[in-house]
Design a protein around this nucleic acid. Structure first.
Lengths: 196, 196
DNA sequence: AGGATCTGACAACAGTTGTAGTCAACCAAG
DNA sequence: CTTGGTTGACTACAACTGTTGTCAGATCCT
């Protein structure tokens, strides 16, 4: 039974901790080496665990990748919710949201790459259609006022694509610009998306 | 010497034809299975040629992938040039360009996926920084009038990202909309990108 | 017909992949 | 101290990768 302790901790504790190490290793690899470098063996090496423990927490390589993606996605969602809450004006809401997102991916570019690039590049994610971006796009779409349903959908998709691309360019260094200016431009994009 | 004919054709002819088959097979695989499914063996199987002929035309798997990408890129460039030439107004230029691009990728979604997705997903392309999109973005950037150099760069990157995302959503079926409406919306995006 | 050239099927190499299994060592509870 | 859950290092397997090599047979020129 799980009550039995081992080296001071219970079995489930250690199991959960190992799962955490694996997800962390997955984030590290998926966010730097990319999808191809994120193999079961590499993840285990990085987590300093053996394959045995991999299959203790995940049935598949696929499951690990999905877990990493959802892990990061949840952080992003939380950051956005926190940033938007209690913002009085739409302008401030947009600014807070963009700023929160920028902070997230600048503090840890691996997360940005996982969030923006991985769903396009990893078969494990593309196969299940596991995109969080459409979710974010839908969220954005709800804020839009112009046009009918389809118009708003297209606008939201376009906006998310524009932001992603700007972030990606910023992440890989091909867009050299101060963080403040990045934020300002993105805010302008968000605010300008609706008025056509 | 190449003058000597074989089965009715010269050696160089058949060599070129084989290269064509390989590029076609590469396009097929890269545009459907994606980067991971585009192995030397798979390409050869698809082209109904043996590995021998692969290395007759390409030194590397990488070279094949690059050739496929540039092949499609050249078609896109040509289509854009043709579409823009002789367009009297900026509005018509934008509309013709968008329409040409939509036709290209709707007629053959594999090309769209190669053009938009492959440079993000295939190490052979990312490694050499082989993006045509920045080239297109720079082209777009030159047409912009507002703001300074950096502003125009950010706007161009954002615009390309917005268009890409809309196209991708259209390609994979998550954006259900008529082709005319897709074109119209993209034209609006292009025309609206500058006025902020 | 003889000899040069071209073709295609296939094997071989060393490497990596996902996944599963074995086995000695360990650690806590009875 | 025995018993049984727990650990980690290691091996095993079949499938795949990029790349190079071999070899029997077809095809053409002289």
């Amino acid at each position: 039974m799980p009550g039995r302790t081992w080296a001071g901790t219970t079995l489930d504790d250690r199991k959960a901790q190992r799962r955490g190490q694996l997800v962390a290793a997955g984030l590290e690899l998926l966010g730097t080496e990319g999808s191809a470098g994120t193999s079961v063996r590499a993840v285990c090496r990085h987590a300093k665990l053996t394959e045995r423990y991999f299959y203790e927490s995940f049935t598949d390589r696929e499951e690990l990748v999905a877990a990493v993606y959802e892990h990061v996605g949840e952080q992003a969602r939380q950051a956005l919710v926190d940033a938007v809450r209690d913002a009085p004006s739409p302008l401030l809401r947009a600014e807070n949201a963009v700023r929160a997102f920028v902070e997230l991916i600048v503090d840890d570019p691996r997360k940005g790459r996982v969030l923006l690039l991985a769903p396009l590049t990893d078969p494990a994610l593309t196969r299940r259609g596991l995109h969080l971006l459409p979710v974010f796009a839908a969220l954005v779409g709800e804020q839009l006022t112009h046009g009918d349903e389809t118009d708003r959908q297209m606008t939201a998709i376009g906006l998310v694509g524009a932001l992603s691309n700007v972030f990606i360019a910023y992440l890989d260094g091909s867009l050299k610009v101060s963080r403040e200016r990045l934020v300002a431009h993105c805010v302008k994009l968000v605010l300008g998306a609706d008025d056509h």
